[in-house]
Amino acid sequence: MIRTAARPGRPLQLAGWAVLWAAALALNRPLWDRLFWEVWALDPGTRLWSALHFFLFDTSKILLLLVGIVYAVALVRSYFSVERTQALLGGRREGVGNALAAALGVVTPFCSCSAVPAFIGFVAAGVPLGVTLSFLIASPMVNEVALVLLFGLFGWKVAALYMGAGLTLAVAAGWLLGRLGLERWVEPFVYAIPLGERSEGSGGPTFDERMAFAAEEVRTIVGKVWPYLVAGIALGAAIHGWVPEGFFLRVAGPENPFAVFAAVLLGIPLYSSAAGVLPLVEALHAKGLAMGTLLAFMMAVVALSLPEMLILRRVLKLQLIAVYVVVVAAGIVGVGYLFNAVLG
């Protein structure tokens, strides 16, 4: 089959859409501010109007960020595959392999539903257990959605600290778990699965096909995420408008030395994507909760959710899951206290 090159106008069309996206993002806040406080002449001191403004502004902003960044990263991901990731990680030494696996987890994010096939494929390709776990930690925690939304909500400093801490945690936890020799707690059938033959492509997809893949990724991911996103923003708007800040400051405020522990313990049983939990983080931060405490909560939700642990139970024995949760949770607690110290 002969593949045709991308049509000449495609890159220009993509650049035009990118400019429109950036303009919509820049004009989002001025638009809602003008509508609420000038055109409709609503009182910003009224809790209802303040909460509704928060909800509409945040929903439109986060959806814009989500669509743009998922499309851009999907284009990058079209040059990767599970097989290529396996080939890059296979045969790597611990340490180097952990760092490479964590970095690959950022650009090739797998959701919890992909955790089992990714785990099986990596182990079958000869990727060490600790290296595989570094990938599984980094992939949901330090993904494009989390980083871009953190940048949009809190600025580059928080996003950079989160990325650095998340990658460090993925590397360190994976290395430690690998050194503990826990392979005996992997279900035996995983090692017995043949890797299978890789199909050789005929030059890879064209740019048009990559653009179509990126558009489909946007439809799929946004279609799955938007209910959680809207629910999270609605909860955040309610907290922003009505819930007294003293309640949160008593439970997880800076005066409570165990606030980070409480946040991590609360986050583990929950399930949400970064898009769903970040609006809540933003609202709680506005109430006075420390950023480190909130980011520890977010890390626990996206990296140690109970549903993902139940999925991983298909390939890991309970002993390994327990050790995995304890090691990663301890690292998240440490990151939370570090963030509180650095961000003050």
Rank of each mutant, 00 (worst) to 15 (best):
F247T: 08
L278Y: 07
P257A: 01
V260Y: 06
V243F: 13
V264M: 09
F247G: 01
V264G: 05
G267T: 05
R250F: 12
V281I: 13
V264P: 00
P244E: 11
G267P: 09
A275F: 06
F248G: 01
L278R: 05
F247N: 05
V243P: 03
L249V: 08
E282D: 14
P269M: 06
V260S: 01
A263Y: 06
A252M: 15
N256L: 09
N256G: 00
A262Y: 13
P257Y: 07
L249C: 05
A259S: 11
P257C: 01
L249F: 03
A274W: 02
F258C: 02
A274M: 05
N256F: 04
F258N: 07
A263K: 00
L270K: 02
A252Q: 02
E282A: 15
V243I: 15
A259Q: 05
R250H: 12
F261L: 13
V264R: 07
L280M: 13
S273G: 15
L278M: 12
V243H: 10
F248S: 01
V243L: 15
P254A: 15
E255D: 14
A274I: 03
V277A: 14
V251N: 00
L249S: 07
F247H: 08
L265K: 02
E282Q: 14
Y271F: 14
A252C: 05
R250D: 09
E245A: 15
V260H: 04
E282N: 13
A252F: 07
A262V: 11
P254S: 15
A274Y: 01
V260D: 00
I268T: 04
A262T: 09
S272L: 13
A259N: 04
A274V: 03
A262F: 13
